[in-house]
Design a binder for these strands. Structure first.
Lengths: 219, 219
DNA sequence: ACCTGAACACCGTTCAAGT
DNA sequence: ACCTGAACACCGTTCAAGT
């Protein structure tokens, strides 16, 4: 016995087991903690064995992210009004990325990922009831999804930095200052927003963004 | 003499030279082509020398992306109406990522990157003239920026896949089919949009997204 | 002060050999 | 059919030794 539920010398070892173990490592140690060697160790096997259940690391990460998004979106939102349902889906994704940043990084790494298509579907499913014309539904769903992906990547990267020690406010003001000084012609808007940049709440900002897009969708 | 402008055995070698050489490699061979070894070879020096002008690879990539975005946004758009100016900024970013996918991947890797703050500033600079209240300008600018980042990452990842051989339509329909089959409860919206997914024009979709958000901003 | 390049501590992936 | 783990072909980064 080593530590966790590892030490499986007997048979078995399925794709689901590999993915579950990968998720456990990712949630504990983040993206940098997952290698084929650490994963093999947790599964009590050699690194090569993993390739019998997974094509490569990209495939593994995509499958892991899909599991996370599926579970985040498994709550039934049918009783909500369509606008509220879209907001709920978006915030569910935000919250799981806030808790597990690696999901956010992975979402924007590969296109047409199952996890991303699932988000796209859950958003789109509420557009008909919102009265959006058939032809406009595709653009509306993709706009919301792209916004979610962009915010997710930013949030994930910010959390990773934050976990690496430095204080959030310090980082932000340093970044803002650097950008302002670098731009010789000056960047008046950035300067005017410096305060908001260091003090705003990420989740509130995200929620406001969803609302703003919803207003555009409603026309 | 080797190949390009390399073979500098004399002194010099500045931060700008390092970044320029990195950009040249990235534009020619993509992200996977840039290593400290290939970069050192082009600069006719050892890998260690690079660390005298750059903190690490993240710093190098962020600086390279910043140069690209600065040049993409250097066109003067002052004569445009504010809405058109925002659209122009967004499309300028889209076009440079379409031409150089590595920029798109880099933008969503690090938060509060100079390149990202520059986009944020250029978008925000047009909001006052658009009649957006002071307090709403921060949310509006960050919403557009996050949308751009999400679309940029998707576009960059899609192009990288496309360059790797497979046909776009094949990839997309395979992805859609996989996602549909995986979801036992079915995903009706995704199924209904399968045609659009495989046939839409990325740039047009992006442009429509910007317009939709602008409508939401105008209220 | 800056360059040089060998060395360190890793990676993902492959593949012969086992069971 | 699946596991095992050594080996391959790389990485980013460090650092003694040079100039």
């Amino acid at each position: 016995m080593e530590k966790k539920d590892g030490k499986r010398r007997d048979k078995a070892l399925s794709r689901d087991q590999v993915i579950s173990a990968a998720i456990a490592i990712l949630n504990e140690s983040g993206e940098s903690g997952l290698t084929f060697r650490t994963l093999a160790q947790r599964l009590a096997t050699g690194p090569g064995a993993i390739y019998n259940h997974v094509q490569n690391k990209q495939d593994l990460l995509a499958a892991a992210a899909d599991v996370m998004i599926q579970s985040a979106l498994s709550v039934n939102r049918d009783e909500l009004a369509p606008g509220a349902a879209i907001r709920a889906v978006a915030l569910d994704v935000f919250d799981i990325i806030d808790a597990h940043p690696w999901v956010g990084m992975e979402l924007s790494r590969a296109p047409w990922q199952p996890a991303m298509l699932l988000i796209f579907d859950r958003i789109g499913a509420n557009l008909q009831a919102l009265g959006v014309p058939d032809m406009a539904q595709f653009h509306a769903a993709s706009t919301v999804t792209n916004f979610i992906l962009g915010a997710a990547a930013q949030q994930a990267a910010a959390i990773r930095l934050h976990a690496d020690g430095a204080q959030r406010a310090t980082l932000l003001s340093a970044a803002a200052r650097a950008a302002i000084h670098q731009d010789k012609k000056s960047s008046p808007f950035l300067q005017r927003m410096a305060g908001n940049l260091t003090e705003h709440d990420d989740r509130e900002q995200f929620s406001a963004g969803v609302d703003l897009i919803l207003r555009g969708i409603r026309g």
